[in-house]
Amino acid sequence: MTGDAGLVIEGLHKSFGRKPVLRGIDLAVEPHQVVCLIGASGSGKSTLLRCVNLLEPIDAGRITLGGEDITRRGVRVNAVRRRVGIVFQSYNLFPHMPVLRNVTLGPVKALGRSRAEARDEAMALLERFGLADRARDYPDRLSGGQQQRVAIIRALAMRPELLLLDEITSALDPELVADVLEMIRDLAEGGMTMVIATHEMGFARDIAHRVCFLDEGQILEEGAPERIFTAPQEARTRRFLQRVVDAGRMDGGRGGT
């Protein structure tokens, strides 16, 4: 399901107007790896993910995906986006289509797959994640957790090489979080390459091969989760983690599974 050379980000800079938001990001994600981005609000996690999906133009640097430079001039943006799935905090399902059409829209209209094939595959995915009985419902009939799982399925239906998840549980009631995290764990075990921005530290510790601490647009520290969470080198990382512990979010995602 995954490409060969993964994702490589080099010297990525991005400003909004005069405000620098990403200041020289270097990050490599190998195929089948799961990287979690942690960091304070406003540190640039969402912007980084949006840059990788070419939803934001970048100012300097280079991003390669599967060996191909996707930030070069004249790149076919839509073709790149078909290879990179992204799921947002606010689900962003299409409210005027039933669940099944939400899932098949991309495969049919962007990939040019036949309707029948797209439907069969969509139903198989819905089945796998326990949502087959909601295929005909409109999104507003679903709970937040179900909507978010449909949004993930919608991204998966494109058979992406890389999946970007942007705080996908932040808008959910606590009791709905576990189902969504369970699904991501499932995908990680299946070898999906993922970059995940998250506030669920327990979940990051559980699932990530590598954790990157983002601070004011830079990756201040990165490493294996055990090291980042138990022996952070940087004072700012320690302070951030201390605040997370104080807020009681360290164990998020472990309970209920």
Binding site: L55, V84, I86, F88, L105, G106, A110
Partner: peptide, 10 residues
């Protein structure tokens, strides 16, 4: 909504 559609490669 547009961002979600565009991110699918539409």
């Amino acid at each position: 909504q547009d961002a979600a559609a565009r991110s699918l490669g539409l």
